[in-house]
Design a protein around this nucleic acid. Structure first.
Lengths: 155, 155
DNA sequence: ACTGAAAATGCCAGACC
DNA sequence: GGTCTGGCATTTTCAGT
């Protein structure tokens, strides 16, 4: 999992595609100061190397109907592998869970939940999250507002 | 900021574009069971309404050279507007800060930082973050692994 | 509202320098 | 890495259902 040697042009390509993922090779090549062919060659390399995992539309969660986010920190009562695997597969299945990290320390999980309102959150908590086997305790924090939104560090 | 009435087809369009943002209108129309023309119309509506904010390449942070993420929770010593505005504009300028939320409660910020290693993190902490005026205290948590990655809840 | 076809555009791929 | 050209895919529009 190396940082695949990238030169300044590769990084420029990635930057452009991070802010506009539908750029055509032509437009892209102009923006990075290259002609289309070598630009397309680099792009294919970046995709093949897995530096570019894919492309996605960036949606407005509020307009989608999920204006409320909640950060939830979860403790399991035993950290055996089975419990982790089980918890993670459950979590991956819940659409309410947007993001989930396995943390160091007390070996918790940190999740971001997106819901339409607190009633939906309560339902999710009581009927889904707390029902997962091995969940010992849960702590929620509610954000007011997203200050900066990114899915990856800017190249 | 309403949840712009979306029918099942609109949501299907959004779902498809969330997992493949470079789909052409043609391919998209086939997948959602429509012919290209109305599909293109809907797509333009979704973009104009701001439900679709844009398109982005999804990058592999590790392969980009930033395998280490750190969650940082920040407390300011006074929560006057000026301090918030100042902190936020600084934070938006740091490439290391991928994500930032203003939290309720003790009115903290929660940030995700992406760096190449802990040395870079230390440098960022001491020479950037702690130098922002009004920052009272900082707490860091290190994740081991990302379990589920999303930038928005699945439509 | 969706469909289908036709026209115009513009894109990509490949061979080659 | 750059240029060019052939061929194709895409988008758009328009008339029809």
């Amino acid at each position: 999992m190396e940082s695949t040697n990238l030169d300044e042009i590769d990084r420029a390509i990635l930057r452009e595609l991070q802010s506009n993922g539908r750029l055509t090779v032509q437009e892209l090549s102009e923006r990075v100061g290259l002609s289309p062919s070598p630009c397309a060659r680099r792009l294919r390399m970046l995709e093949a190397a897995g530096v570019i995992r894919g492309y996605a539309a960036t949606l407005d969660e509020a307009k989608l109907g999920f204006p409320v986010s909640i950060f939830v920190s979860v403790k399991l009562d035993k950290q055996v592998d089975d419990a982790l695997v089980n918890f993670e597969s459950r979590v991956r299945g819940y659409p309410e869970v947007v993001d989930c990290w396995l943390m160091t320390g007390p070996r918790d999980y940190l999740l971001r939940i997106a819901v339409s309102d607190l009633a939906e959150f309560e339902k999710f908590l009581t009927s889904s999250l707390t029902r997962i086997e091995g969940v010992a305790s849960i702590e929620s924090s509610i954000p007011l507002r997203r200050v900066k939104a990114g899915s990856a560090r800017r190249a």
